[in-house]
Design a binder for these strands. Structure first.
Lengths: 357, 357
DNA sequence: TTGAAAGCGCTAACAG
DNA sequence: CTGTTAGCGCTTTCAA
């Protein structure tokens, strides 16, 4: 049906066309399209019909050029590791972000980085003013990305507590959304304690991430005087959890419980325990973190774990950013929650009991 | 440090500013910024310096307005199911897409749909001409999305073989990228045959997806005269795999091998087998599909499976789309691989042997 | 309440 | 090779 000329450019109708059709001026059409404030009803109606008939869709480029809004938000995921693929964590946050952005007619521009070589590109993009704001996931304590973004001077909300000192002099507070990692960890360990366990070990995540640090702190809050050999570093993967568990068992054969920093390492730990002949939960009780259903419900036994509302975190990040944008009309600070509002929003966690503890 | 006036808009330098600084015209600056063809070296140098000093970044909106290019591609993931989160499949494809787009200075706009209610929004967006093209994942046979996108008249490449009739009259061929699902399935089943197994069962994915159909066809290619009770529908999840495995064992207690349509269902099947006292691979040999490392390598025993190069699929999709865009200057057809080129690119799979078969 | 007119920042003919 | 000149499609004063 379609012709095959190279120049076959479907000529999208412009405001002009709609105006002509409706017999009004461009300005009037523009008003109607943008909410119809201050236009008399019959005209509104006529314009609406013309828009409908012509299948008019505003040209976002032209609009941005004058409004300096883009109705787009960048989501930066700076995770060189394979973690992004090993668990559905980011996917769920993305889902939440997407929902919120969609509800506000904003677009999601995804920026994935392979390595730090990509950071310059991301910085340039953000500084280029192509988006109204940024949602940034950068989990590592020494990551230069946050600083770079600060320089780009674009409103930003971080996913997870950023690693640098909160109160650096002269700098604006950095808004972020996080789970109550510390509190959740405390709940987990207390639960184990309540089960009558006393030799409670902890498999951490990578120690250069704030979530790991916070969960470890929670563990220590409750187990202040625990044997330091009961803490082993993992890496949030099943393989790491398995390795850590073996080391733990090696060091402290008498341990009777384990709190793993996430479900994936818990699943690895579970495997090590089974291989080495320990029954769960009879011999060793096990608690995870995340409540990633495909993992936590599928292990044998299913995992008792600390649930964080991952999707809600994403939604909240977007919501905070958008709110800030509305407030200051897209102006240039990474400070959506301005005006002395708390800079970090911490979502509660809940302990989900299954069979492993 | 920063003042707090609402109007604090960092005034980005314009072409004009750079031109003034370099003592040339806007046109010259534009030329340099876009590659510097046909500008004498000393001028190029001066302009470059001015750009550098001012920290000039082109205003994409202004550029798009005239070029009608956006240097952005939409990625549409239409998966209402939770599958997106249950396995890293999309994440890996996204990674591949992102790499390729990045290499071509193109942006990735992510469009996630919750339900079919969102389709209209996606259609509007695509039809709105906000992006140069679209990469679409729509796995279900009866999905109205492809038709909708066809209507939007934007260059598109599909991920996975689309479900509708390839040769519908008068319609352009639909470019897509897929794995050789059928061939991979054949390899899997032949491998099982080679192991001396004869009662080989198949756990399918959801039957409304082309990948499921193709893998089933591959199974049947080799097992033409197999007992029909040896085929049970699964849903690509561990739970589904477990359920299917139980049913299979119930129907055909004498089966000695299983080909599961993906690793996740294989892991579920594995669990059922263990629970019911069958040894893998001694009693029942098991082969999966995907080679999702976090799954295939972590099961006990690790899975023999059919590897598909997921990331490469993503990269190829983007590459195809971009190539098509270059060719026809962004014109309006879903036909990047135009000119009689094959409309579907099918990537080979490879059997990866581990312990389960 | 509506319309006319002036750009937003950039590219692309067209001259010189 | 470089500069001048028109717009791209839209929003937004400013007048009417």
């Amino acid at each position: 049906m379609r012709s095959h000329e190279v120049t076959e450019t479907a000529p999208r109708p412009t405001l002009e066309a709609v105006a002509a059709r409706a017999g009004v001026s461009r300005a009037t059409v523009s008003r109607v399209v943008n909410g119809g404030e201050g236009v008399r009803e019959p005209l509104v109606e006529r314009v609406r019909r013309a828009v409908e008939e012509l299948g008019y869709v505003p040209n976002q480029a032209a609009r941005s050029l004058v409004t300096r809004r883009h109705d787009a938000v960048a989501v930066v995921i700076a995770e060189p590791e394979t973690r992004v693929f090993a668990d559905p964590f980011f996917a769920l946050q993305l889902r939440g972000i997407s929902k919120e952005l969609t509800a506000h007619d904003s677009q999601l521009v995804l920026l994935l980085t392979e390595s730090r070589d990509d950071y310059a590109r991301v910085g340039r993009y953000l500084a280029g003013g192509h988006v109204d704001g940024a949602l940034v996931f950068s989990l590592h304590l020494d990551d230069p990305l946050p600083e770079l973004i600060r320089g780009a001077d674009v409103p930003t909300v971080f996913g997870g507590r950023p690693g640098w000192g909160e109160g650096a002099r002269g700098t604006a507070p950095t808004p972020y959304v996080d789970s109550d990692n510390r509190g959740g960890a405390r709940d987990a360990v207390r639960h184990l304690l309540g089960l009558g366990r006393s030799r409670i070990a902890h498999i951490t995540g990578p120690l250069d991430q704030t979530s790991t640090v916070d969960r470890l702190d929670g563990y220590r809050d409750v187990m202040a005087d625990a044997d330091p050999r009961l803490v082993v570093e993992g890496d949030f993967t099943p393989a790491g959890g398995e390795r850590a568990m073996r080391e733990l068992l090696d060091r402290c054969p008498d341990l009777d419980a384990v709190f793993a920093a996430n479900d994936l390492s818990a699943s690895g730990a579970l495997r090590a325990l089974r291989t080495l002949g320990r029954r769960v939960p009879e011999d060793v009780a096990l608690v995870g973190f995340d409540d990633m259903l495909p993992v936590a419900e599928q292990t044998d036994p299913p995992l008792t774990t600390v649930r964080q509302n991952t999707e809600e975190m994403g939604r909240l990040m977007a919501s905070l950013l958008l709110r800030g944008l509305d407030r200051q009309g897209g102006g240039g600070a990474e400070e959506p929650g301005a005006g002395g509002a708390p800079s970090g929003v911490v979502l509660p966690t809940t302990l989900v009991r299954r069979a492993s503890a």
